[in-house]
Design a protein around this nucleic acid. Structure first.
Lengths: 116, 116
DNA sequence: TGTGCAATTAGCAAATTAGCTAATGATTGA
DNA sequence: TCAATCATTAGCTAATTTGCTAATTGCACA
């Protein structure tokens, strides 16, 4: 459920593709392996990364382990992240504009310059 | 602007931290390097990854290069991705429920079994 | 025009990741 | 219980990433 794990999980193309498959149906490891041209162990590893990040859940049904999307975690995490960076209403927070204004002050005596 | 580049860029903790800094002010490479305990070249590389993904933009001001967030690209990409996986109203699309129902059919003659 | 600082590029070592095959659980059904 | 099948773990190699320092490029200004 950590941001780190979620973004690490989403950084892989095959893993995002797995999520896409799981968005329309619950599937087992081997069913996913068929759809990809990858070995079952490889898929299994990807699934464990996704599960560890809280993006999918699994349930054993007899011989099979069915994986399905955990859509709430996905959406909440991404939305939370985006909101932290850009709270509604635009790119910059109020405070930031103040900071941006401050940057315009120049020092003359120091040799070290600052941008602005 | 590709999904691949965006998620690769977001996969790094330091890069997400850079985005957080840029969400409240435009900053130069060296200003960012101060805030992190990292060398300027390292920050510069992170910034180029972020810029290449379309998440930040840069503008040279004299000696300095100021970086700032490209919030639209960030939000649109994440929202688009999330929406593709979970269109409004719940985890599964209509079609998916049909598929899930289909899975319940069993074959008797084949030795290969299917989950469900 | 030459010196100094900001930024980037080049080149390197350590760590991580992604794929594979082989081996080891887990579960069903004869 | 044995054989078959699904899933996962172990162990390996190739490729990528991340940090660094050193070298190079771009600008400002004395």
């Amino acid at each position: 459920m950590s941001l780190d794990k979620v973004f690490e999980a989403l950084a892989s193309g095959p893993r995002r593709e797995i999520l896409a498959y799981l968005s329309s149906a619950e599937l087992s490891t081997s069913e996913l392996a068929e759809r990809f041209k990858m070995s079952a162990p490889t898929i299994s590893r990807h699934l464990s990364v996704l599960e560890n990040a809280g993006l999918v859940t699994s349930a054993r049904h007899g011989q099979f382990v069915l994986y399905k999307l955990a859509p709430d975690n996905l959406v909440n995490t991404l939305a939370g992240f985006a909101f932290e960076l850009c709270p509604v209403g635009g790119p910059l927070k109020r405070e930031s504009r103040k900071l941006a204004a401050q940057k315009k002050t120049k020092t003359k005596t120091k040799t070290v310059r600052k941008p602005g």
